[in-house]
Protein backbone atom coordinates (compact mmCIF):
# COMPACT_ATOMS: atom_id res chain seq x y z
CA UNK A 1 0.00 0.00 0.00
CA UNK A 2 1.69 3.10 -1.14
CA UNK A 3 1.01 6.29 -2.95
CA UNK A 4 2.92 8.20 -5.57
CA UNK A 5 4.36 11.70 -5.23
CA UNK A 6 5.44 13.65 -8.26
CA UNK A 7 7.45 16.71 -7.28
CA UNK A 8 8.35 19.30 -9.90
CA UNK A 9 8.75 16.67 -12.62
CA UNK A 10 10.12 18.25 -15.80
CA UNK A 11 11.16 16.58 -19.03
CA UNK A 12 12.77 18.42 -21.91
CA UNK A 13 13.23 16.81 -25.33
CA UNK A 14 15.48 19.07 -27.38
CA UNK A 15 13.68 22.37 -26.90
CA UNK A 16 10.24 20.90 -26.24
CA UNK A 17 9.08 20.89 -22.63
CA UNK A 18 7.11 17.64 -22.60
CA UNK A 19 6.60 17.97 -18.85
CA UNK A 20 6.72 21.34 -17.16
CA UNK A 21 7.03 21.26 -13.37
CA UNK A 22 4.35 18.65 -12.75
CA UNK A 23 3.23 18.18 -9.16
CA UNK A 24 0.76 15.47 -8.21
CA UNK A 25 0.03 13.43 -5.11
CA UNK A 26 -1.70 10.12 -5.48
CA UNK A 27 -2.85 8.45 -2.31
CA UNK A 28 -2.59 4.75 -1.66
CA UNK A 29 -5.21 2.67 -3.46
CA UNK A 30 -6.40 5.59 -5.55
CA UNK A 31 -6.81 5.53 -9.32
CA UNK A 32 -5.90 8.78 -11.02
CA UNK A 33 -6.54 9.30 -14.72
CA UNK A 34 -4.17 11.52 -16.71
CA UNK A 35 -6.43 13.05 -19.34
CA UNK A 36 -5.39 15.21 -22.26
CA UNK A 37 -4.96 15.46 -26.00
CA UNK A 38 -2.07 13.71 -27.73
CA UNK A 39 1.21 15.45 -27.09
CA UNK A 40 0.10 16.88 -23.74
CA UNK A 41 2.74 14.90 -21.84
CA UNK A 42 0.50 12.34 -20.15
CA UNK A 43 2.33 9.32 -21.56
CA UNK A 44 5.72 10.90 -20.85
CA UNK A 45 4.62 11.38 -17.24
CA UNK A 46 3.51 7.75 -16.97
CA UNK A 47 6.74 6.53 -18.55
CA UNK A 48 8.68 8.67 -16.08
CA UNK A 49 6.96 6.91 -13.19
CA UNK A 50 7.86 3.60 -14.86
CA UNK A 51 11.47 4.70 -15.30
CA UNK A 52 11.29 4.34 -19.09
CA UNK A 53 11.96 8.09 -19.30
CA UNK A 54 14.41 9.91 -17.05
CA UNK A 55 13.02 13.31 -15.98
CA UNK A 56 15.24 16.31 -16.65
CA UNK A 57 14.34 17.69 -13.23
CA UNK A 58 12.12 16.84 -10.30
CA UNK A 59 11.58 13.80 -8.10
CA UNK A 60 9.34 10.76 -8.20
CA UNK A 61 8.44 9.00 -4.96
CA UNK A 62 6.67 5.65 -4.70
CA UNK A 63 5.53 4.77 -1.21
CA UNK A 64 7.67 7.61 0.14
CA UNK A 65 10.85 6.17 -1.44
CA UNK A 66 12.65 8.31 -4.00
CA UNK A 67 12.86 6.20 -7.18
CA UNK A 68 13.93 8.98 -9.56
CA UNK A 69 17.23 7.28 -10.37
CA UNK A 70 16.13 3.67 -9.77
CA UNK A 71 16.12 1.59 -12.98
CA UNK A 72 12.75 0.37 -14.27
CA UNK A 73 13.30 -3.24 -13.30
CA UNK A 74 13.83 -2.34 -9.64
CA UNK A 75 10.74 -0.14 -9.33
CA UNK A 76 7.63 -1.56 -7.63
CA UNK A 77 5.49 -1.09 -10.74
CA UNK A 78 3.42 -3.07 -13.20
CA UNK A 79 2.53 -1.65 -16.60
CA UNK A 80 -0.13 -2.27 -19.22
CA UNK A 81 0.59 -0.98 -22.72
CA UNK A 82 -1.74 0.22 -25.46
CA UNK A 83 -0.28 -2.39 -27.84
CA UNK A 84 -0.58 -5.23 -25.25
CA UNK A 85 3.18 -5.97 -25.60
CA UNK A 86 2.65 -9.60 -24.60
CA UNK A 87 5.56 -11.93 -25.31
CA UNK A 88 4.48 -13.82 -28.46
CA UNK A 89 6.71 -16.80 -27.65
CA UNK A 90 5.04 -17.42 -24.29
CA UNK A 91 1.53 -18.64 -23.49
CA UNK A 92 -0.93 -16.58 -21.45
CA UNK A 93 0.13 -18.51 -18.35
CA UNK A 94 3.84 -18.06 -19.08
CA UNK A 95 3.35 -14.36 -19.77
CA UNK A 96 1.77 -13.88 -16.34
CA UNK A 97 4.50 -16.01 -14.73
CA UNK A 98 7.30 -14.00 -16.38
CA UNK A 99 7.63 -11.21 -13.77
CA UNK A 100 7.72 -13.83 -11.00
CA UNK A 101 10.24 -16.05 -12.76
CA UNK A 102 12.68 -13.24 -13.46
CA UNK A 103 12.53 -12.55 -9.72
CA UNK A 104 13.48 -16.19 -9.08
CA UNK A 105 10.42 -17.00 -6.97
CA UNK A 106 10.04 -20.70 -6.14
CA UNK A 107 8.13 -22.69 -8.76
CA UNK A 108 5.28 -23.68 -6.41
CA UNK A 109 4.73 -20.07 -5.41
CA UNK A 110 4.76 -18.97 -9.07
CA UNK A 111 2.18 -21.58 -9.99
CA UNK A 112 -0.15 -20.66 -7.11
CA UNK A 113 0.11 -16.95 -7.88
CA UNK A 114 -0.45 -17.42 -11.63
CA UNK A 115 -3.54 -19.59 -10.98
CA UNK A 116 -4.88 -16.89 -8.70
CA UNK A 117 -4.30 -14.20 -11.34
CA UNK A 118 -5.81 -16.26 -14.17
CA UNK A 119 -8.90 -16.51 -12.00
CA UNK A 120 -8.82 -12.77 -11.27
CA UNK A 121 -8.61 -11.69 -14.91
CA UNK A 122 -10.93 -14.55 -16.01
CA UNK A 123 -8.51 -16.26 -18.37
CA UNK A 124 -8.49 -19.80 -16.97
CA UNK A 125 -9.84 -21.34 -20.22
CA UNK A 126 -7.25 -19.46 -22.33
CA UNK A 127 -4.28 -20.13 -20.02
CA UNK A 128 -2.37 -22.30 -22.48
CA UNK A 129 -3.01 -20.28 -25.60
CA UNK A 130 -0.46 -18.03 -27.25
CA UNK A 131 -1.11 -14.28 -27.53
CA UNK A 132 -1.97 -14.56 -31.23
CA UNK A 133 -4.68 -17.08 -30.37
CA UNK A 134 -6.70 -14.83 -28.05
CA UNK A 135 -8.89 -11.79 -28.71
CA UNK A 136 -7.77 -8.22 -28.09
CA UNK A 137 -9.78 -8.00 -24.88
CA UNK A 138 -8.32 -11.27 -23.61
CA UNK A 139 -4.81 -10.15 -24.56
CA UNK A 140 -5.24 -6.97 -22.54
CA UNK A 141 -6.60 -8.93 -19.57
CA UNK A 142 -3.51 -11.11 -19.79
CA UNK A 143 -1.36 -7.97 -19.81
CA UNK A 144 -3.24 -6.79 -16.71
CA UNK A 145 -2.56 -10.12 -15.00
CA UNK A 146 1.12 -9.92 -15.93
CA UNK A 147 1.37 -6.36 -14.60
CA UNK A 148 -0.26 -7.33 -11.29
CA UNK A 149 1.68 -10.58 -10.83
CA UNK A 150 4.47 -9.24 -8.62
CA UNK A 151 1.91 -7.29 -6.50
CA UNK A 152 3.30 -3.91 -7.57
CA UNK A 153 2.80 -0.79 -5.45
CA UNK A 154 1.62 1.09 -8.54
CA UNK A 155 -0.23 -0.11 -11.63
CA UNK A 156 0.47 1.99 -14.72
CA UNK A 157 -1.97 1.84 -17.64
CA UNK A 158 -1.05 3.51 -20.92
CA UNK A 159 -4.24 3.91 -22.99
CA UNK A 160 -5.06 0.24 -22.39
CA UNK A 161 -8.35 0.34 -24.29
CA UNK A 162 -7.38 2.33 -27.40
CA UNK A 163 -6.72 -0.71 -29.57
CA UNK A 164 -10.07 -2.35 -28.78
CA UNK A 165 -13.47 -1.95 -30.37
CA UNK A 166 -16.21 0.01 -28.65
CA UNK A 167 -18.15 -2.84 -27.07
CA UNK A 168 -15.11 -4.57 -25.56
CA UNK A 169 -13.78 -1.22 -24.44
CA UNK A 170 -16.49 -0.40 -21.89
CA UNK A 171 -16.55 -3.97 -20.59
CA UNK A 172 -12.78 -4.09 -20.09
CA UNK A 173 -12.81 -0.61 -18.56
CA UNK A 174 -15.18 -1.81 -15.86
CA UNK A 175 -13.14 -5.00 -15.50
CA UNK A 176 -9.93 -3.03 -14.90
CA UNK A 177 -11.71 -0.93 -12.29
CA UNK A 178 -13.12 -4.02 -10.56
CA UNK A 179 -9.70 -5.70 -10.42
CA UNK A 180 -7.94 -2.53 -9.27
CA UNK A 181 -10.38 -2.04 -6.41
CA UNK A 182 -10.19 -5.71 -5.48
CA UNK A 183 -6.40 -5.77 -5.17
CA UNK A 184 -6.44 -2.20 -3.77
CA UNK A 185 -3.43 -1.11 -5.79
CA UNK A 186 -2.61 2.49 -6.58
CA UNK A 187 -3.09 3.14 -10.28
CA UNK A 188 -2.31 5.76 -12.91
CA UNK A 189 -4.44 5.55 -16.03
CA UNK A 190 -3.52 7.48 -19.16
CA UNK A 191 -6.27 8.25 -21.67
CA UNK A 192 -7.39 10.88 -24.15
CA UNK A 193 -11.02 9.84 -23.74
CA UNK A 194 -12.78 12.02 -21.17
CA UNK A 195 -15.72 9.69 -20.61
CA UNK A 196 -13.31 6.80 -20.00
CA UNK A 197 -11.32 8.90 -17.52
CA UNK A 198 -14.43 10.00 -15.62
CA UNK A 199 -15.92 6.52 -15.55
CA UNK A 200 -12.86 4.75 -14.17
CA UNK A 201 -10.91 7.17 -12.00
CA UNK A 202 -11.21 8.43 -8.45
CA UNK A 203 -9.65 11.66 -9.62
CA UNK A 204 -8.86 13.05 -13.06
CA UNK A 205 -5.81 15.17 -13.82
CA UNK A 206 -6.40 17.23 -16.95
CA UNK A 207 -3.13 17.85 -18.78
CA UNK A 208 -2.23 20.33 -21.47
CA UNK A 209 1.15 21.45 -22.84
CA UNK A 210 3.08 19.43 -20.26
CA UNK A 211 1.24 20.89 -17.30
CA UNK A 212 -1.57 19.66 -15.09
CA UNK A 213 -4.43 22.13 -15.53
CA UNK A 214 -6.77 20.72 -12.93
CA UNK A 215 -7.06 17.70 -10.64
CA UNK A 216 -10.56 16.90 -9.47
CA UNK A 217 -13.08 14.17 -8.82
CA UNK A 218 -15.09 13.44 -11.98
CA UNK A 219 -18.40 15.12 -10.89
CA UNK A 220 -16.52 18.19 -9.76
CA UNK A 221 -14.56 18.35 -13.00
CA UNK A 222 -17.75 17.99 -14.97
CA UNK A 223 -19.63 20.63 -12.99
CA UNK A 224 -16.95 23.20 -12.46
CA UNK A 225 -13.98 23.10 -14.80
CA UNK A 226 -11.26 25.31 -13.37
CA UNK A 227 -9.68 26.45 -16.62
CA UNK A 228 -10.65 27.36 -20.13
CA UNK A 229 -8.91 24.18 -21.37
CA UNK A 230 -10.66 21.90 -18.87
CA UNK A 231 -13.98 23.36 -19.91
CA UNK A 232 -13.23 22.72 -23.58
CA UNK A 233 -11.84 19.25 -23.09
CA UNK A 234 -14.22 17.78 -20.53
CA UNK A 235 -17.89 17.25 -21.32
CA UNK A 236 -19.38 18.41 -24.58
CA UNK A 237 -19.87 22.08 -23.91
CA UNK A 238 -21.13 24.98 -25.94
CA UNK A 239 -18.58 27.75 -26.14
CA UNK A 240 -19.69 31.23 -27.22
CA UNK A 241 -17.31 34.13 -27.54
CA UNK A 242 -19.08 37.29 -26.33
CA UNK A 243 -18.14 40.96 -25.95
CA UNK A 244 -17.72 42.28 -22.42
CA UNK A 245 -20.20 45.12 -21.95
CA UNK A 246 -19.87 47.15 -18.76
CA UNK A 247 -18.42 44.18 -16.89
CA UNK A 248 -21.03 41.68 -18.01
CA UNK A 249 -21.50 38.94 -20.62
CA UNK A 250 -24.95 38.93 -22.15
CA UNK A 251 -26.58 36.64 -24.69
CA UNK A 252 -29.79 38.50 -25.54
CA UNK A 253 -32.52 37.25 -23.30
CA UNK A 254 -30.78 33.91 -22.67
CA UNK A 255 -28.41 34.87 -19.84
CA UNK A 256 -26.71 37.82 -18.24
CA UNK A 257 -23.66 37.00 -16.12
CA UNK A 258 -20.69 38.92 -14.69
CA UNK A 259 -17.63 38.89 -16.94
CA UNK A 260 -14.63 36.87 -15.65
CA UNK A 261 -11.86 38.69 -13.86
CA UNK A 262 -9.26 40.01 -16.23
CA UNK A 263 -11.51 40.03 -19.28
CA UNK A 264 -11.70 43.46 -20.83
CA UNK A 265 -12.71 43.08 -24.46
CA UNK A 266 -14.12 39.62 -25.09
CA UNK A 267 -14.66 36.45 -23.06
CA UNK A 268 -15.91 32.90 -23.54
CA UNK A 269 -19.11 31.59 -22.01
CA UNK A 270 -19.40 27.80 -21.59
CA UNK A 271 -22.69 26.05 -20.97
CA UNK A 272 -23.77 22.43 -21.33
CA UNK A 273 -26.37 21.34 -23.87
CA UNK A 274 -28.56 19.81 -21.15
CA UNK A 275 -28.75 23.18 -19.37
CA UNK A 276 -30.25 24.96 -22.35
CA UNK A 277 -33.94 25.54 -21.79
CA UNK A 278 -35.83 25.57 -25.09
CA UNK A 279 -39.39 26.84 -25.60
CA UNK A 280 -41.43 27.40 -28.74
CA UNK A 281 -42.86 30.77 -27.81
CA UNK A 282 -41.57 31.61 -24.37
CA UNK A 283 -39.13 34.25 -23.29
CA UNK A 284 -35.44 34.17 -24.10
CA UNK A 285 -33.02 34.55 -26.97
CA UNK A 286 -34.34 33.70 -30.46
CA UNK A 287 -32.74 30.70 -32.18
CA UNK A 288 -33.56 28.63 -35.25
CA UNK A 289 -33.59 24.84 -35.18
CA UNK A 290 -31.23 23.56 -37.92
CA UNK A 291 -30.93 19.83 -37.31
CA UNK A 292 -32.27 17.28 -34.85
CA UNK A 293 -30.00 14.38 -33.85
CA UNK A 294 -31.72 11.46 -32.15
CA UNK A 295 -29.42 10.00 -29.47
CA UNK A 296 -31.82 7.55 -27.80
CA UNK A 297 -33.30 8.88 -24.60
CA UNK A 298 -32.25 12.39 -25.50
CA UNK A 299 -32.26 14.37 -28.71
CA UNK A 300 -29.71 17.02 -29.56
CA UNK A 301 -30.91 20.20 -31.26
CA UNK A 302 -28.46 22.15 -33.39
CA UNK A 303 -29.47 25.78 -32.94
CA UNK A 304 -28.49 28.79 -35.01
CA UNK A 305 -28.55 32.18 -33.42
CA UNK A 306 -27.13 35.65 -33.81
CA UNK A 307 -24.48 36.82 -31.36
CA UNK A 308 -22.97 40.25 -31.54
CA UNK A 309 -24.03 40.63 -35.18
CA UNK A 310 -22.55 37.25 -36.27
CA UNK A 311 -24.07 33.82 -36.68
CA UNK A 312 -23.26 31.29 -33.99
CA UNK A 313 -24.25 27.66 -33.46
CA UNK A 314 -24.77 25.76 -30.24
CA UNK A 315 -26.44 22.59 -29.00
CA UNK A 316 -29.35 21.90 -26.71
CA UNK A 317 -30.21 18.47 -25.34
CA UNK A 318 -33.73 17.52 -24.30
CA UNK A 319 -35.72 14.35 -23.68
CA UNK A 320 -36.53 12.81 -27.05
CA UNK A 321 -40.27 12.78 -26.38
CA UNK A 322 -40.24 16.51 -25.85
CA UNK A 323 -38.18 17.09 -28.99
CA UNK A 324 -40.92 15.54 -31.12
CA UNK A 325 -42.73 18.86 -30.95
CA UNK A 326 -40.02 20.66 -32.93
CA UNK A 327 -39.14 20.42 -36.61
CA UNK A 328 -36.08 21.88 -38.39
CA UNK A 329 -36.68 25.49 -39.29
CA UNK A 330 -38.73 26.16 -36.16
CA UNK A 331 -38.21 29.52 -34.46
CA UNK A 332 -37.46 28.85 -30.81
CA UNK A 333 -36.46 30.76 -27.70
CA UNK A 334 -33.59 29.68 -25.41
CA UNK A 335 -32.64 30.50 -21.83
CA UNK A 336 -29.77 29.31 -19.66
CA UNK A 337 -29.69 29.60 -15.87
CA UNK A 338 -26.80 32.00 -15.06
CA UNK A 339 -25.60 29.46 -12.47
CA UNK A 340 -24.90 26.99 -15.29
CA UNK A 341 -22.76 29.40 -17.30
CA UNK A 342 -18.97 29.26 -16.77
CA UNK A 343 -16.97 32.15 -18.08
CA UNK A 344 -13.26 32.41 -18.86
CA UNK A 345 -11.13 35.23 -20.17
CA UNK A 346 -9.84 34.67 -23.69
CA UNK A 347 -6.40 33.08 -23.66
Amino acid sequence: MSGVDLIGVTKVFGHVRALDDVNLQITSGEMVALLGPSGCGKTTLLRSVAGLERPTAGRILIGGRDVTSVPTRDRPIGMVFQSYALFPNLTVRQNIAFPLEVRHRPAAEVKARVDELLELVRLVPQADRYPNQVSGGQAQRCALGRALAPSPAVLLLDEPLSALDALVRTRLRDEIRRVQQLVKTTAIYVTHDQSEAMAIADRVAVMNHGKIEQVARPPELYESPATHFSATFVGSRNALELPVVSGRLVLGGAFDVPAPAGATDRAVAFFRPEDVEVTANGQGHPATLEVKIFLGSTTRLHLLTEVDGRQARFYADMPSRQALAYEPGAKLAVRIDPADVKTFALE
Binding site: A50, R73, I77, M79, L86, V102
Partner: peptide, 14 residues
Protein backbone atom coordinates in the same frame (compact mmCIF):
# COMPACT_ATOMS: atom_id res chain seq x y z
CA UNK B 1 8.20 -4.94 -32.18
CA UNK B 2 11.29 -5.66 -30.13
CA UNK B 3 11.46 -2.19 -28.56
CA UNK B 4 8.00 -2.55 -27.04
CA UNK B 5 8.68 -6.09 -25.89
CA UNK B 6 11.94 -5.00 -24.27
CA UNK B 7 10.22 -2.19 -22.42
CA UNK B 8 7.45 -4.51 -21.29
CA UNK B 9 10.02 -7.02 -20.04
CA UNK B 10 11.81 -4.22 -18.20
CA UNK B 11 8.62 -3.20 -16.40
CA UNK B 12 8.22 -6.87 -15.47
CA UNK B 13 11.54 -6.67 -13.64
CA UNK B 14 13.71 -8.47 -16.20
Amino acid sequence: GIERLSEAAETCGG
